[in-house]
Amino acid sequence: MKEFRSNGKLFLIGEYIVMDGAKAFALPTKFGQCLFVEENLNQENLISWKAKKHDDSLWFEAQFELSSLTIIKTSNQKLSESLQKILVQAKSLNPSFFNSNLSFKCETKLEYPQEWGLGSSSTLIDLIAKWVEINPFELNKLTFNTSGYDVACAHHSQPILFSNNPITTQLIDLNWNFIDDLYFVYLNQKQDTQAVVGNHYKNKEKNWDLIHYLSDLVEQATKVESLNELESILDEYQDKLADFMHQPKVKDLYFSDYKGSVKSLGAWGGDFVLVTKREGFEEYFKQKGYTTIVPFREMIL
């Protein structure tokens, strides 16, 4: 049996502007997804696929004809069609891999609650790319066509400075002595604002001076030496972007009286926020109904 593993992702700073070629500072997570592949000698021309959630419950299962990648049967048509799309594009990048004389039994397993949004799609892209021996960024471009930072996180095991035009990934050593003052707070559910804000940014005329300015802030964030420096950069980034988009920050919406920083991670309205510690911060967020609070050390590689 072959085993592959890919990391989840959190996007610290550089959201939206990364699509315009600017720098992004992203964090691979300790939680990811695994793929187990067993070659089946008793059958030919078949992929049997089973996907499990973090608690070992079944997410979905499907069978595909290996040579054509036709769905033979499935427990969830929509999810199987999404997987089929990835497999079809993987085949286009390495046709010989999908030899009809072979048969595979595949099983994926998430390492975190699915609703956390740490990258079930990007980890799957990276896992399949490792298995089929193809470039994960090429596969991503042919399928989900994200900026690629999430695939880079899946592929690397330390924080990264990423840009996608062209794709470059610089590994970062975080020697922060204030990591114990950083926490991730889960916002409980997908926020309706996420797609709306993303489309709003896309449809606005580009402000290249702002994009370059914000990209410089991203690079500065990788080099800070104190919590105050980091807070200042995160707050300034959000303020500038909020002014440009005429959109409220997550702190203004939900945590306006909090004394520390609150930073949206990835798309505004996403699943987690980064918060900087203040006295009584856990009680503050729990009283507002946000009970999943994860220390930086427990989340980030």
Results as ranks from 00 to 15, higher is better:
161 L>H: 12
120 S>P: 06
90 A>D: 11
40 N>K: 02
104 F>A: 09
167 I>G: 09
131 W>N: 14
42 N>G: 07
218 V>H: 04
255 F>Q: 05
257 D>L: 04
229 E>N: 03
190 K>H: 02
232 S>G: 03
78 K>H: 14
48 S>C: 08
226 S>R: 01
236 E>C: 10
298 E>S: 07
71 I>Q: 08
93 L>V: 15
171 L>C: 04
299 M>C: 07
57 S>A: 00
63 Q>Y: 10
199 N>I: 00
34 C>G: 05
110 L>M: 08
228 N>E: 14
44 E>R: 07
229 E>Q: 12
121 S>M: 03
71 I>C: 11
175 N>T: 12
56 D>E: 15
195 A>Y: 09
88 V>K: 13
177 N>P: 13
6 S>P: 00
223 K>T: 10
196 V>R: 12
107 E>F: 04
140 N>S: 12
164 N>D: 06
43 Q>S: 08
210 L>R: 01
138 E>Y: 01
16 Y>G: 00
285 F>D: 06
189 Q>S: 09
18 V>M: 00
20 D>N: 14
220 Q>W: 00
280 G>F: 11
71 I>R: 05
99 N>S: 14
99 N>V: 05
151 V>A: 08
203 N>R: 07
201 Y>N: 02
9 K>G: 05
249 K>E: 00
267 A>W: 09
217 L>A: 04
171 L>W: 11
131 W>A: 07
31 F>P: 04
264 S>H: 01
64 F>R: 06
239 D>N: 11
165 N>V: 02
247 Q>H: 06
31 F>M: 09
127 L>K: 01
125 I>D: 00
234 L>R: 02
36 F>L: 11
219 E>C: 07
168 T>C: 12
144 F>V: 12
154 A>I: 13
111 E>Y: 12
190 K>V: 13
158 Q>C: 10
180 D>R: 15
127 L>D: 05
129 A>R: 09
273 V>C: 08
191 Q>Y: 02
23 K>Q: 04
252 D>W: 10
63 Q>I: 02
205 E>A: 03
5 R>F: 14
209 D>Y: 10
249 K>G: 03
262 V>K: 10
278 R>Q: 15
155 H>Q: 01
190 K>C: 09
115 E>H: 08
105 K>S: 15
135 N>Q: 02
231 E>L: 06
127 L>V: 05
174 L>N: 14
44 E>Y: 02
234 L>G: 01
39 E>R: 12
82 S>Y: 12
67 S>P: 00
220 Q>E: 05
35 L>I: 05
55 D>P: 02
73 K>R: 13
53 K>V: 14
74 T>K: 14
178 F>P: 02
146 T>H: 13
259 K>L: 13
81 E>G: 12
279 E>A: 06
24 A>Y: 10
14 G>M: 05
98 F>R: 10
129 A>I: 14
57 S>F: 01
244 F>Q: 10
141 K>S: 15
230 L>Q: 08
69 L>H: 02
77 Q>M: 15
